[in-house]
């Protein structure tokens, strides 16, 4: 396959970037999208140019490190698929592909396609945990967790913190991420004691980090590689309102 790539290049420390065009040939349909970029980078390196910086690690869709907007869609055209799991068989010979970083005020661009997603860690640090110091745990079977609750918690806990929801949201809101983290714990008995304090702190940190608010557009759920559902945010809102009664 022969492709034309238009890739966002932004040197470290620069406030502005631009699209650079790269013609690339000999792309195999069995390559992953990132393997295709590896080939481009090998050529740039040998030509004495700076290779395209992009984040990646596990390349099997679970670590959440990779993330780029491909032809206007976070993680590209395949549903429920991270950029590293997207394969070139979903493109056609001669295609023009635009590649951009996540764009959000709370995710400053570090270089090229690499952004700083540390704000998501700050949200977790604010309350995304159960206070359970090592050694203090009761016997695992002392608390029964109905299968439905465990499965529902798991669905939310599947979030990989990649930030695609933020990149897709016109408001650059991280509410789907925050809601997934809140829901994971609020659906389990272990999460109940801190339930309402947790949601208040996490939402406050979300807002302070510069993420926009949620206006129920739903782009986030459409691009989420782990298919976190939009109604997770509804549940978060319910907990926020309940917190005013229980706090």
């Amino acid at each position: 396959m022969r492709l034309t790539l238009k890739v966002w290049r932004q040197p470290k420390g620069a406030t502005k970037g631009h699209f650079e065009t790269y013609e690339t040939d000999g792309v195999s349909p069995d390559m992953s999208f990132l393997e295709m970029l590896d080939v481009v980078n090998d050529r740039l390196t040998l030509d004495g140019q700076d290779p395209i910086a992009f984040d990646h690690d596990c390349r099997e869709g679970i670590c959440g490190t990779c993330g780029m907007v491909i032809n206007g869609v976070a993680h590209g055209p395949e549903r429920a698929t991270t950029a590293c799991q997207l394969h070139m068989r979903h493109f056609r010979d001669g295609d023009v592909i635009h590649i951009e970083p996540w764009r959000a005020a709370a995710f400053p661009v570090i270089k090229d396609l690499v952004v700083d997603r540390g704000a998501l860690d700050r949200i977790m640090e604010a309350g995304g945990f159960v206070t359970a110091p090592t050694g203090a745990a009761p016997e695992a079977h002392s608390t029964l967790v109905p299968k439905e609750a465990a499965d529902a918690a798991f669905e939310a806990a599947a979030c990989i913190q990649c930030g695609a929801c933020v990149a897709a949201c016109p408001n650059a809101s991280a509410m789907l991420f925050t809601a997934a983290k809140v829901a994971h714990l609020s659906r389990l008995p272990q999460g109940q004691p801190e339930r309402y304090g947790r949601v208040v702190k996490m939402v406050a940190t979300h807002d302070a980090a510069g993420f926009g608010n949620c206006t129920n557009i739903g782009e986030c759920a459409a691009v989420c590689p782990k298919e976190i559902k939009l109604d997770t945010i509804t549940a978060l809102n319910r907990d926020v309102i309940s917190s005013t009664l229980f706090q």
Partner: peptide
Amino acid sequence: IDQCVAQGVPFAR
């Protein structure tokens, strides 16, 4: 296992 359950790890049930 006890520790992980206390933290809210959603093991299969």
